[in-house]
Amino acid sequence: MAGAAPVLEDGSVLSRLDRGLLRLERGFALIAGLAVLSLMFLAVRSVGGRLLLNAPLSGYVDWIMQLMPLIAILAVSFAQRDGTHIRMDLLVAHLGGRALWLFELISVLLILFLMVFLLWGSWAHFLRSFDLAAPLWSRDSTIDIGLPIWPAKLLVPVAIFVLCLRLCIQAWGYGRALVLGLANPVAVPLVQDAAAQAAAEAETLGEKG
């Protein structure tokens, strides 16, 4: 499912930017993973508390709803970096050279166009829930224990902003490949044929099992 593809690296500015951003993205992914793990502990605490102590975790649903944006959105740029977001590559897999880079460039620019608007919209969504004059700066709260929602809403524009940076790097990478007619450009996920892609994916599962 995860169609990750290799990203080449060298000593160029572009590649250094790529790796710099990757460090941030990997950090975000780890936070997201830890948030998944905490879902598990929350449930154990909730069920255990209910069955053993008659003290269910107060606001269990509220806490989960606060965690979900962390899990579901924060790593969006990490997945864009190596092309994990799925697509139909029936057509692109048959392209090569400049035609391919042109295609990829247009696609990345379209995503960037989309993301600029979503950045605006999600920021506005955050602002509507945020009020410097209110207690806890909150103008929107969860149903059960009244947690302020703005921190969770703020995560979305943050994640999208990082994705915009990533898209700029990729646009640069593809643009450079297009202009210079490169065969193996850095800082962008390379198109593999489906089989090679699957092999790479199976590789990530390691040898255990």
Binding site: L30, A32, G33, I71, F78
Partner: peptide, 10 residues
Amino acid sequence: LIETAKLTVM
């Protein structure tokens, strides 16, 4: 965890 995060975000 990172693999989970990646597949999840996808």
